Every structure is written in C-alpha cells, then in structure tokens.
Simulated scan of single mutants.
Amino acid sequence: MRSFLFRCGLLGLFALAAAAGVRGAERCANGPLPERPDTLRILGVGNSFTDDGMMYLPDLLRAAGIGNVVLGRLYFPGCSLEQHCRFYEDDAANYTYYKSTANAWETVSGRAALTDALEDERWDIVVLQQASHFSGLYETYVPWLERLIGIVLSHNANPALCLAWQMTWAYAGDSDHWGFAAYGGDGRRMYEAIVGAAGRMRANRGIDVLIPAGAAVQRARATVETRRDMTRDGYHLDLGAGRYVAACAWFEALIAPTLGVSVWGNAFRIPEGGPETTPVDEATARRCWSAAAEAVRNPFGGTEGAGAIRP
C-alpha cells in the first residue's frame, strides 16, 4: 500500500509530495496543450465510455492525413476514479491496454496495470473521466480525482503534461442502467448534473481542457435520428453516429488546437451496420461536426439543437 500527500497547486492541481521514489512534488500546475508537436501522444484512462469516445479517432486521423499521433486507451468496465486509485494501491493488472501508433487500434496487453500505460510513452495529454453513473455526482470525485492526478503526475516523464477531462453523456430516456436512478431516470436531469459536476471539477481541480463528448451527443440527439438516443443499449453509444460524434468532440478538443486540423470536412464515414449502428452519411457527418464544434466552443451552454451547419 502506497501512501500519498497531495498539495494544491496554482491551478488547483495536486502533486505527489510523499512516497518513496515518487517524482514531481514540485509540480503544481497543469501544462497547456502542446503546439504543433512532432508527435502527439494521448492516453485515455477510463472505461467503456473512454472506448466509445476514442474508438474512431484513428479513422478520423487517417482520413485527415495525420500520421503523427500515438493513442493509448486503458480499459476496465465501469471503472470509477476511486477504482483506478484502488487498483494502483494494489498494483493490480486488471486493465486491457490498447494502442494506436499507425491509426489502427491494437491490443498491447489484456493484463495491464495503470503504471504500464502511464510509463509506456512520454504522454503529452492524459485524459481522465468519472464512471458514467457517477459523472453527475461531484461528491464521488472527492478525494479520488486528486489522488489519481497525483498518480498520473508521478508516473509520466513529460514535465509539460496536459491533463484533460472527458465529459460523458446522459443515458437514453428508457435506459435500465441501475445508476440512472440517481437522476430520477431523467436524461435531461442527468445531463445537467454531468455539466454541473464538470464545471465544479474544473473550478476546484484546474483541469480546464475539456472534451465535451456529452455536450456533443446531447446536441446531436436533436438533429440525428437514431434508436435509443444515439445509444446501443441505453447508455453505451451507438456504434455509428453516437461514437462518431463523440470522436469528433475528441478531435476538435485535442487535435484541432494542437495540430491545426479541424474535423470539418473529414472524409471518414460509417456504412449501415445493423441495429446498433446508425450509418454516418454526408448529412449526418455534417450534423456531428457541428454538434462537436459547438460543444467544444461552449461546453456548458445550451443544447437544444446542433445549431447552424456550415455550408
């Protein structure tokens, strides 16, 4: 069992101040997004909602002609901030670790520890999130987000590491997920709680780089016709348009400002693929780009529609 002492930094982030061999007690501020790096390295630490958000990023990158992005994805089903910290304390190799180095996902290990992924690359950006059912309950972030931030900082070799946060999406109105009860089974109420918790997280912990996948999905739901509110089971995203709009939000939030390439005009499409896959044609792609761009521009704003679509 490792013990930690965390202290607040200039932006509300925390550095690990005690534990044998732990680096970075002097770290007290979040690094900015990198600008035009030779290679951009992004790691997502999360669960199936991280998978949903990142799954089509390699496809969007390939279609945009971008070949200098390394992606990592650390997955454990339903993993919360607290569970990540517990796994770290126990040095548990419970994750599946996926990686994309040439715009295609590959499985690195089915028995990975948190440190295996954190130390695998000199990551420029590490993306965190809360488990979807807890995402609107800010009390579940404390003290676990603070501790997880310290763990990430202590196991990354990049002194300019940028921490980012994926804002997850609300469940479909007919979702039977047990966690939906905390929001009265009301999708709008859940969404507003998620937005509120993300705002408190940013104010209190200083992670100001947001990937508003939830806001993008909420906007797209107003203009893209899919089954079950863009989900395949009431909570995980539809394998077509749902995952597509979430990936567009990741692209606009991280790729556009670092590499100068927007998702607008991206040629990646998703054909018909069965009841869990809403196809992405030209019209649907444009609606998803618009929803993602508006969400990144205003993650805490109105979500009644996708707004004006570019000509």
Rank of each mutant, 00 (worst) to 15 (best):
M1K: 13
F4W: 15
L5N: 13
R7G: 14
R7H: 10
C8D: 10
C8Q: 15
G9S: 01
L10V: 14
L11H: 15
G12T: 06
A20I: 08
G21I: 12
A25M: 08
A25H: 12
G31H: 06
L33R: 07
P34I: 02
T39K: 11
L40C: 05
I42H: 02
G44M: 11
G46R: 06
S48H: 11
D52Y: 03
D52R: 12
G53W: 04
M54T: 12
R62P: 00
A64G: 07
A64R: 05
I66F: 01
I66H: 09
V70A: 12
V70T: 15
L74D: 01
F76W: 05
L81T: 00
H84K: 10
Y88C: 08
D90F: 11
D91P: 00
T96N: 09
T101K: 09
N103A: 05
E106W: 00
T107H: 00
S109P: 03
G110V: 05
A113P: 04
W123D: 12
V127L: 12
L128Q: 02
Q129P: 01
Q129E: 12
H133S: 14
H133I: 10
S135T: 03
Y141V: 09
Y141H: 10
P143Q: 06
W144L: 00
L148M: 14
I149G: 07
V152R: 00
H155R: 07
N156A: 05
A157L: 07
L161P: 13
C162A: 14
L163T: 00
Q166A: 08
W169S: 02
A182Y: 07
D186H: 02
D186V: 01
R188E: 14
Y191N: 09
E192K: 01
V195L: 12
A197R: 00
A198G: 13
R200T: 07
R205G: 01
G206E: 10
G206T: 08
V209C: 02
V209K: 04
L210I: 15
G214C: 07
G214L: 10
G214Y: 08
Q218P: 00
Q218R: 14
R219K: 12
A222T: 08
A222L: 04
E225G: 04
R227C: 04
M230F: 02
R232Q: 13
H236V: 03
R243A: 06
Y244E: 11
C248H: 00
A249H: 09
A249N: 02
A253D: 10
L254W: 10
A256Y: 03
A256T: 14
P257R: 06
T258Q: 11
L259Y: 09
G260T: 09
G260N: 07
G260W: 03
S262I: 11
S262P: 08
W264P: 03
N266H: 05
A267M: 05
I270A: 02
E272L: 06
G274Y: 09
E276N: 13
E276Q: 13
P279R: 03
E282D: 15
E282K: 03
E282R: 11
A283F: 01
A285I: 13
R287V: 10
C288M: 02
S290T: 14
A291R: 08
A291I: 07
E294D: 12
R297K: 13
N298P: 06
F300A: 15
G307N: 00
G307F: 06
P311G: 12
